[in-house]
Amino acid sequence: MSSTSSLIRMEIPPVPYFIAVGMTAFGPGGQHPNRRNLGIFDLIWMVKGVLYIAEEDRQWELSEGQTLLLLPDRFHYATKPCDAETVFYWIHFDFTGDWSVTEESAAPVPPIGQPWANRYTIQIPQYTAQPSSAMAQHQLQRFMDLSSENRSNAFWNQQQLFMDLLRKLEEGGRKGSASPAMKLAEKTEAYIKQHYQADLTNETLAEALHFHPNYIVRCMKEAYHCTPMDYLHEYRLEQAKLMLIKTEWPVAQIAETVGFRHTPYFSSCFKKYAGISPLRFRKQYSS
C-alpha cells in the first residue's frame, strides 16, 4: 500500500475533457490489465471489493468509496488477483495543458495573471476516499445512462457531470490537507479581492480577519510567496488592465477606482508592472 499521497495539479485553461465512462466487474482471480503510456487519464472509482493495482513503484489496495487517478505517461499493472467480486467505475479524460505531480503539503501558488484569462489550478488527490460515495455512485450511473442517449444531448450533460466530479475530488482533497496557514491565506486572498478598492493595510486586514498582522503576512508568504500588500498591488493593476480594455474611462478615473490615490503614481506602477504605460496598453487593444 502506498504510504504517500500526491496531488495532480492541472493549470487551466484549457480544462480537462471527458472522453468515456464504463463499469468493470472482476470475479475472484480477475485483475486489472497492465497498461503503459495510455496517453489519457484514467480515474477509477471503487464500488465493491478490493482492487490491487500499482503505478510504477507505488501500490494501492482500493476498496469501496476510494478513488485513484492513473496518469497518462506511466506503467499501470495489477499486483495480485482480486480475492472476491470487485466492481468499479472508470472515467477516461484528456488534458492538453500543463500538469504536474506534487506532494499534498506543497502550497499552491495561483498566479494572479491576466483577469480575462480566468486562470486556475485544479488540484486532484491521486488517491483518496470519498465521504459522499452514494451520491457519487448516483452521478456515475447517470454518466452510464447518458452513454445510450443521442450525442448532442449526452455531450453537454456528461461534460457537466464530469466537471462536477472533479470539483468534488478537489474539495475532498482540500478539506483533508489544507493547513491552518493555507486556510487563512485563502481567506485573506478572498478579502483582498472583495475590498481591493478600499484603503487596505495589514492592520485593516488583521482587524477584519481577527488575526495578528504578522501572522497573516507569514501565512500569505507561506502559501502564495508574497505579502498581502504585494498581492493587493498586483491585483489592483490587473483590474486596471481589464478596465483599460473594457471601458473608455480616463486613466485618472481607473486609477482611483482600483484604489490608487494619485494618478502619476498609478501610471508609474503600471508601467513598471506591464512594461508599457496605461494609454499604450489600451492602444494595443484598440482598432
Rank of each mutant, 00 (worst) to 15 (best):
1 M>N: 14
9 R>C: 12
10 M>G: 02
14 P>A: 06
16 P>N: 05
19 I>V: 08
20 A>F: 09
23 M>G: 00
23 M>Q: 12
24 T>E: 14
24 T>L: 12
25 A>T: 15
31 Q>H: 14
32 H>A: 10
34 N>D: 13
36 R>L: 11
37 N>R: 14
42 D>N: 15
46 M>E: 02
50 V>Q: 07
51 L>A: 10
52 Y>L: 00
52 Y>Q: 04
53 I>Q: 04
54 A>R: 12
56 E>H: 11
61 E>G: 07
62 L>E: 03
63 S>C: 03
64 E>K: 08
64 E>I: 01
65 G>K: 05
68 L>M: 12
68 L>W: 07
68 L>A: 01
74 R>D: 08
76 H>I: 07
76 H>Y: 02
78 A>H: 10
87 V>E: 15
87 V>T: 09
93 F>Y: 11
104 E>S: 13
108 P>I: 15
109 V>H: 11
109 V>Q: 15
110 P>D: 07
111 P>D: 00
112 I>G: 01
114 Q>G: 02
118 N>Y: 08
120 Y>T: 07
121 T>N: 06
127 Y>L: 03
130 Q>T: 00
132 S>T: 06
135 M>K: 10
136 A>I: 07
138 H>D: 08
138 H>F: 04
141 Q>D: 05
145 D>Y: 02
149 E>W: 06
153 N>E: 13
155 F>W: 11
157 N>I: 01
161 L>Y: 03
163 M>H: 13
165 L>E: 02
165 L>H: 03
169 L>G: 00
170 E>I: 09
179 S>I: 07
181 A>H: 03
182 M>S: 06
184 L>I: 14
192 I>M: 09
192 I>Y: 08
195 H>L: 04
195 H>G: 01
195 H>E: 04
195 H>V: 04
196 Y>I: 15
197 Q>P: 00
201 T>V: 13
205 L>H: 04
213 P>Y: 02
214 N>T: 15
217 V>I: 14
220 M>Y: 03
221 K>T: 02
226 C>N: 05
230 D>S: 12
233 H>C: 02
235 Y>A: 06
236 R>K: 14
237 L>H: 03
241 K>Q: 11
241 K>G: 00
243 M>R: 12
244 L>N: 04
247 T>Y: 07
250 P>V: 06
253 Q>M: 13
255 A>E: 02
259 G>P: 13
261 R>Y: 05
263 T>I: 04
265 Y>R: 07
268 S>A: 09
268 S>R: 15
271 K>H: 09
273 Y>E: 15
